[in-house]
Design a protein around this nucleic acid. Structure first.
Lengths: 193, 193
DNA sequence: TGCATTTGCCTAAACTCTTTAGGCAAAATA
DNA sequence: TATTTTGCCTAAAGAGTTTAGGCAAATGCA
């Protein structure tokens, strides 16, 4: 009897392992154990431990992009903003390991070929509901990317856990604030007459 | 001849190593090599590899808090906001490994005893230059924490590198935007009559 | 159905890092 | 100078990574 390993299945198992024990504790050995297979067998499907982790990151980025796209469908303005932001946050709550993986630094070529590109496209799509011309649109894309990544990461780390107000409320108010900011984006003081 | 190891010196060397090779590649073995000492010798000064990493994180948090406090001295309003934000960003540029370390998730007790506390106090101090009552002040502290952490992390990862506009410009405009947001913080729609 | 080929998982082994236990010599103390 | 303490060492076991080569199960072809 063979285990029926494929790169796909190995990466999926790695993603599940990440959610259970943390992305930084994912090892090829443990994945092998879960398939009840010897470690060496995995090396036909992933090049290295590093390669496995990169693949998990790419997988998470894809999965998250899919969810975000679904959430975004048919929405505009603040609705779209909240849908995207919630997709991001909910994903991190359901799949903390994968969400950490999605934050992994990828080398430029890998990143350019990843679903990360779709993420910034979606962010840009959200901004169509607001009146932002270039280059402010790009500034806003970067700001939003930073906020989602940073806020969710902080919340997941428990930084907000044991103090009022409820993180749930803060999140809602942060979305209000971002919406307000995008509606009243300040003009560049350097260009003001 | 003895090497003169102390926990302090070991942690410092670990921080330097982190800046050179990345925080995730810090090993007790490599630090030992740099002191030209056998690995086992380090275990009188740090409890474990994990312990070393936590200490590096705490060290980075302290160092960053010190810099931020200096930058903040005598400033208020947007000046203070920019000073704090730049202290954070400059630190990440000078010490990428330590900055990564500072983003490490700490368990609640450790976090509560860390300089992380001072960081949120400083953020709160910055907000005194804006007219924000509780609970909005806390929401804003969380938002700012998220932005700084997330934006700088994204920028360090090279996400903004190879596309216009200049990240330097984006950063300035993001600070403009945050300042504008704090000056015009939206009232809670749930409480609007 | 029988045979050949391919494929997939295995054994073996080298290397690195982590961590503990106990020893010995260099500092510190008296 | 003698003694205690301290600090770094040797030794060794355990776990993860990675490569090379082997054998049997699946697949394909007659």
């Amino acid at each position: 009897m063979r285990a029926g390993l494929t790169t796909e299945r190995v990466v999926r198992a790695g993603a599940e392992l990440a959610d259970e024990v943390g992305f930084d504790r994912v090892t090829v050995s443990e994945v092998a154990r879960r398939f009840d297979v010897k470690v060496a067998s995995l090396y036909s499907h992933v090049k290295s431990s590093q390669d496995l982790k990169i693949r998990i990151a790419l997988f998470a980025l894809e999965e998250l992009a899919e969810r975000a796209a679904d959430a975004l469908a048919g929405r505009a303005g603040k609705d779209a903003l909240a849908a995207y932001a919630n997709a991001y946050r909910d994903y991190a709550r359901e799949h903390p390991g994968r969400a950490d993986a999605a934050r992994t630094r990828l080398d430029p070529e890998t990143a350019a070929a990843s679903a990360g590109v779709r993420h910034s496209q979606m962010t840009r799509a959200i901004l169509r509901g607001y009146d932002l011309a270039e280059p402010d649109q790009t500034h806003a894309v970067r700001l939003l990317g930073g906020v989602f990544q940073g806020y969710v990461s902080l919340e997941m780390s428990g930084s907000f856990s044991h103090s009022a107000p409820d993180p749930e409320v803060s999140w809602a108010r942060v979305l209000d604030a971002l919406d307000a900011l995008l509606r009243n984006w300040p003009t560049d003081p350097a260009r003001r007459p």
